[in-house]
Computed example of a mutant assay.
Amino acid sequence: MDLASVIRLLLLSAIWGSSFLFMRIAAPVLGPGILIELRVGFAALFLMLVGFAIKKQLKWREHWRHYMILGLFNSALPFLLLAYAAQTLSASLLSILNATAPIWGAIISALWLRQAMPFKKVLGLVVGIAGVAILVGVDSAALSLDAKVAISASIGAAVCYGIASTYAHSAKSVEPFANAHGGMWASTLLVAPAMLFFPIVEAPSANLMLSVVFLGVVCSGVAYLLYYRLISDVGASSALTVTFLIPVFGILWGSVFLNEAVSWNTLLGTSVILVGTALVTGFSPRTVFAARQQTSR
């Protein structure tokens, strides 16, 4: 992986890690419905402008069902669940629980294809669940009813990402930028009714609205462009490294900007979850290097 790709990888990890910080700031004020409608709406408008600039057609009539399914499971539903959880949980915890998405993706893929999971993946699943138990099981604040519901919502979001990744692999081929662009417009339509069930809590400040714009344009729109550029440059295996770096930045931003405590169980639970994710995905520095060698030939 060359220096430019490493910089893009770190930048993408930092951006996606910051999304949990901005949701933690904005969700208690705007509520999940309005916050996520603004997030996906700003992202859709940004990607539309990019699409015009690079002359990429959306082909909505041809692929609208595909965009709706992808938008539901890759953006609308997981974003709403994370925003709901962000009213209660810390940005650090949100980012760590989100890192379990590849584990659920492996389970869903095995069920979808009706294939037995190899022992290594089963072990990774057990290790990942143990990591979640370490992360939340020794924290008395996480044992309250509100926290349990929020933790379940966060894990539900990770499951949605697993469904989305499995569906994307099995669905008909659609150009990656169109997936991001069309998925965001579909999400904008799907999230709109949620605004009726999650009314705004209080009038937002100008700074908070800037955070929401950043969440939509940068954390969703720009982040997708960076991610697909990474896949193009270094391959999917190397791009998967972002999964392991997002919690690092999530914990960092939460600690620096929200004074969230970083306890021993946070660090241990995160490490165990990432080990489980590595086992499930087959990720290792050696596979990244091998993938980079293949793409460079």
Rank of each mutant, 00 (worst) to 15 (best):
G162V: 05
M1N: 07
A278F: 10
A141S: 12
F119E: 11
G128M: 04
L93K: 03
A26Y: 05
L77Q: 05
S18R: 06
A223C: 02
S152M: 00
P102G: 07
A85C: 02
S255Y: 06
M23T: 00
P78G: 06
L113F: 11
A178P: 12
G51V: 12
G105D: 01
E260F: 10
S95E: 01
V256M: 11
A180P: 05
T266S: 10
A261N: 10
L274I: 09
A194N: 05
L81D: 00
I155W: 01
K59R: 15
L72M: 14
I151T: 06
L70P: 00
V262Q: 00
L93F: 03
R229H: 12
D233Q: 15
D146L: 03
M195R: 15
A43P: 08
G31P: 08
V213C: 07
L35K: 11
V29Q: 02
C160R: 08
N207Q: 10
L70F: 15
F198R: 08
G51I: 13
G105S: 03
M23A: 05
V222W: 09
K56Y: 04
V29Y: 05
V248K: 08
D139G: 04
G182N: 02
S154N: 03
F20I: 04
A239Y: 01
I251E: 03
H169N: 14
